[in-house]
Simulated scan of single mutants.
Amino acid sequence: MVEMATPGLAPGARIYVAGHRGLVGSAITRHLASRGFEVLTRTHAELDLTDADATTEFFADTRPDHVVVAAARVGGIMANSTAPVDFLEDNLRIQLNVISCAYRVGVQRLLFLGSSCIYPKLAPQPITEDALLTGPLEPTNEAYAIAKIAGITQIQAYRRQYGASFVSAMPTNVYGPADNFDLETSHVLPALIRRCHEAKVSDAPEVVLWGTGTPRREFIHAHDLARACLTILSSYDDPAPINVGTGVDQTIREIAELIADVIGYSGRLRFDSTKPDGTPRKLLDVSRLHALGWQPEVPLRDGIQATYEWWLEHSGTPIVAGPRRAHRSTLTR
């Protein structure tokens, strides 16, 4: 049975989710549809959001009531370090095109999704929203972070100059179904799931991981993020970005050990301290979100188990046991 739409957004409102095939966008699409909204989507093949003319035509034709900007070029330390131009320019183009077109066709509410990496590398913990622009960024993902900061500024500028009811949210590290498990571009949690699984299947004696294992990270399941996005769309209207997280973090070593335990890998986890760690800690202060009545639902272990099972079902390539060898993984932002 379809539930009634959330108060604050009209029942059956038409909501365009940019980036609906990604980890975050797909979860938001499922959640909005389950709440009775009409969700508009386009694949990248159907609409390239870096193309200003194509984006303008799409908005002129569809005229959605609301928009969620979940489309972005994303990746971990390796991807951000090797392709900073792509992360900067692609994200700037997507944001400029979608936000400006949404305003021109009269979109009522727009939610722009950024990232916790917008905050200074050494920001006081837990990180409050007013820590933005108070110190240097983490160098390994600076280009991506600057693009997201530009998106926040664009949202604030549209509010100040035109009175647009546009808002921005900064999620912590997200995981769940439809995550990216490519070892060259994935974030830490899916990379660890894949590495530990492959090590288990090949009976490898160890998995070698980048960094010291001491940085602390906070993770939120995509389902919980989707719930938070609907809460924000319905109830939040402020120029300041709002943090989205669980308010709980663990060390990378603890995360890796938990994943190995879920998967059943009993080999050694060895950390290569000659490789970068990234930001030492990124725990978000989520008091603003909690004040709206939102709380997370998915425990980390349960979420990891479900994500692992999803990947096994959807990977499509059987992994055949091979010779014993060490598996290497990068730790990401």
Rank of each mutant, 00 (worst) to 15 (best):
A306I: 07
T317P: 13
P276R: 02
Y308M: 02
R288H: 15
G264T: 05
T246K: 11
A306K: 11
V244Y: 05
T279I: 07
D302L: 14
R288S: 15
I304C: 08
R268F: 09
I319A: 09
S329F: 12
P296W: 04
A326W: 12
G278V: 03
G247Q: 02
D249E: 15
L283M: 02
A291Y: 00
K275M: 15
R270Y: 04
E309Y: 03
P323T: 08
S273E: 15
E297H: 13
P318M: 03
V320Y: 09
T317F: 12
A306E: 12
D285V: 01
Y265I: 01
D272P: 07
W294V: 09
K282A: 09
S315G: 11
F271P: 03
I304F: 04
R270I: 06
D261L: 04
S273M: 14
V248C: 10
Q305I: 13
F271K: 03
L292Y: 06
V320I: 12
D285S: 05
F271D: 03
V320C: 05
G245T: 01
K275V: 13
V286Q: 01
V248T: 14
P318R: 10
D249R: 00
A326T: 14
D302A: 12
P323V: 00
R288Y: 09
E254W: 10
P276M: 07
I319C: 10
E257S: 11
A306Y: 04
T317H: 15
I255L: 08
G316W: 08
R324Y: 04
E254P: 09
D277N: 07
L292T: 04
I255C: 01
W294G: 02
Y308L: 03
A256H: 03
R253C: 05
E257Q: 13
G278Y: 04
R328L: 13
I242Y: 07
T279E: 15
T251M: 06
Q305H: 13
D261A: 07
E254C: 08
H290F: 04
G303K: 04
V248M: 10
F271W: 13
A256G: 00
D261P: 01
H314N: 14
Q295M: 10
E313V: 01
H314A: 14
E257I: 06
I319R: 08
I319W: 12
G316L: 12
P280H: 11
K275I: 10
S315W: 11
E313L: 05
P318V: 07
T246H: 07
D249V: 01
P296G: 02
I242P: 07
R268M: 12
D249C: 08
Q295E: 14
H314P: 04
I319Y: 11
D272I: 07
